[in-house]
């Protein structure tokens, strides 16, 4: 494992649509500044944005941790519940429990989780109902 070049944590508030996406925007700017390849920066930014919106829309809040090493980048996300009862179902394209309100804002297509998996080189999700959800994404640099 290489030396850590950067480690940052970004809190995400539940239900706060006005600031949703700000953490991902910060992450994107940080990675750009580090001089990481723009195609990789975009993949990380998309995955970060999807997971951040999920925390805002579906969770009770949590945080996203960014760890950048010379040849690997990790985005570890934790939330405080409510957890996902059927993770396999949630991972399917088109599955969504989002409200009509959320849909009129342009989200709730059920594309977020599959899109994260597609963008990351490594993806894992663990969820316990009543406890919370952990998502770990890894990107080769």
């Amino acid at each position: 494992m290489g030396a850590i070049t950067l480690k940052e944590s970004y809190p995400v508030e539940a239900g706060d649509f006005s600031t949703a996406g700000e953490a991902s925007g910060k992450i994107k700017r940080v990675l750009k500044k580090l001089g990481i390849d723009s195609a990789i920066v975009r993949r990380v930014a998309v995955a970060a944005y999807e997971v951040e919106l999920n925390l805002v829309i579906h969770s009770m809040g949590g945080h996203m941790d960014l760890i950048v090493e010379p040849d690997y980048l990790q985005l570890n996300v934790h939330d405080r519940g409510p957890g996902i009862p059927d993770v396999d179902l949630a991972m399917r394209e088109g599955y969504s429990t989002a409200s009509d309100d959320v849909r009129t804002m342009g989200f709730g297509a059920g594309m977020g989780l599959p899109n994260m998996r597609r963008n990351a080189n490594d993806f894992s999700i663990r969820s316990t109902v009543g406890v919370g959800t952990d998502i770990e994404m890894g990107f080769k640099l």
Binding site: A20, G21, R42, A45, V46, G106
Partner: peptide, 15 residues
Amino acid sequence: GLTNAHVMRTCEMLD
């Protein structure tokens, strides 16, 4: 046809 701020945030992520 969507005119909220999330359009701009989405655009930022995708350049």
